[in-house]
Amino acid sequence: MTDSVRAFERGLRVIRSFTADTSLQTLADVARATDLNRATARRFLLTLEELGYVRRVGDLFTLTPRVLDLGYAYVSSFGVPQLAQPYLEQLSEQLHEAASVGVLDGAEVVYVARVPAKRVMTVSIGLGTRFPAYRTSLGRALLAWLPDDEVERLWDVSDKQQPTSRTVADLDSLRQRLRAVRRLGYALVDQELEIGVRSVAAPVRDATGRPVAAINLSTHVSRTTKQDLQQRFAPALLRTAGQIEHALSSRPS
C-alpha cells in the first residue's frame, strides 16, 4: 500500500471511529480507537477540521453534518435509493408500515433509503444503519442469489451473536432459508432480528438480472401475521420491486 493510499485509509478510519456511542471523542480516544499514535491522530483530526468534516468542542472532537456529503455522493451515483423513494412511499402508504431499500456491503446489509412507519417500532433504523445480512429479510433477499462459496465466506466473517432464540445459528439453516427465498422470490424473517418484528423483502435487479438492492416492509407481530405477510405484503412488495426495476431499465444511459 502506497503512502498516499495508507493516509487515505487512516483518514477514513478516523471518521469511522465516531459512532452513536462515541460521537464526542478526545484525541486519546481517537488514537486508541484507530490504533494510531497521538501525533498521527492529531494530524488527521486537524486536517478533517480544516476540511469541515470535524469540529472541536473544548478538548473533544465531533463530526459535522458535512460528513453526510460522503454518503449522499454514493446515493447520487448509485441512483437506486433516489429512484426508489417514491415507490417506497406509495408502498408504505398502501400497507401502513415502514419500507426500506438496502444493499450488501460485505457481510452486512446497509439501509440506503427508508420511509418510516407512522406507528411506533422498537427497532431504530435510519439511513446508514447496518445489520448482519443473514439476520434480515433485506440481506437474505440478496444473499440468496450469490454462489454457495460466497455465502459461506460471508457467513464465516459475520457477527454470529444470537439476538433472539429464533435467529439462524448455523450455515446449513441459513442455506435452507436461502433456498426458500429462491423458490418464493422473496425473503420472510420472523423475529430473528428482534422479538416482535417481522419483515419481508424482495430483490431489485438491474437490466442484466443481477440483484443490486432489495426492498422490504417491516411490521410488528401484534398487527401482522405471517399469513398476512405472505398473502398481502409479499405480492405488493414484488409488484413494487418490478416497478423499480422497470424504472431502472428505463433510465437514460
Rank of each mutant, 00 (worst) to 15 (best):
Q227G: 06
S17V: 01
F78P: 04
G52A: 07
P252Q: 13
P86V: 04
L146W: 09
G106R: 04
S92Y: 05
D170E: 15
A187Q: 08
V54R: 00
V57C: 06
G128S: 10
R114K: 14
Y186S: 02
R114D: 04
F78N: 10
V151R: 07
L91P: 02
P116W: 03
V112N: 02
R114T: 09
Q231I: 04
Q161V: 11
T47S: 13
P116H: 04
L138G: 03
V123F: 01
D228L: 08
T129Y: 09
A84K: 00
V204F: 04
T225N: 02
G102H: 05
A28W: 03
R130W: 04
T224R: 06
L237E: 03
G196N: 06
L217C: 08
R32S: 14
L68S: 12
E49Y: 02
Q85M: 12
T26Y: 01
G79L: 06
L193Y: 01
F78H: 10
V200P: 07
L127R: 05
L46A: 12
K118N: 12
L12P: 02
T62W: 00
L36H: 06
R239M: 08
R183P: 00
S23T: 08
T64L: 02
G52I: 11
G102M: 04
T129A: 12
P163S: 05
K160P: 04
L88K: 02
V103I: 15
Q231K: 10
S158E: 11
F233A: 11
K226Y: 00
A234Y: 00
D59N: 13
L154F: 08
A247G: 09
E152Y: 04
G128V: 03
G11P: 10
E152K: 14
G11R: 15
A241Q: 07
L27M: 11
V112T: 14
V221K: 07
L143C: 12
M1Q: 10
R55W: 02
T136R: 02
R223E: 14
E97M: 06
D59F: 03
A201N: 07
D148K: 12
V30S: 08
L63C: 07
E93N: 12
I244A: 07
V200F: 02
D59Q: 12
L237S: 03
R55M: 11
D21V: 10
R42N: 12
V221C: 07
G209W: 10
D59A: 13
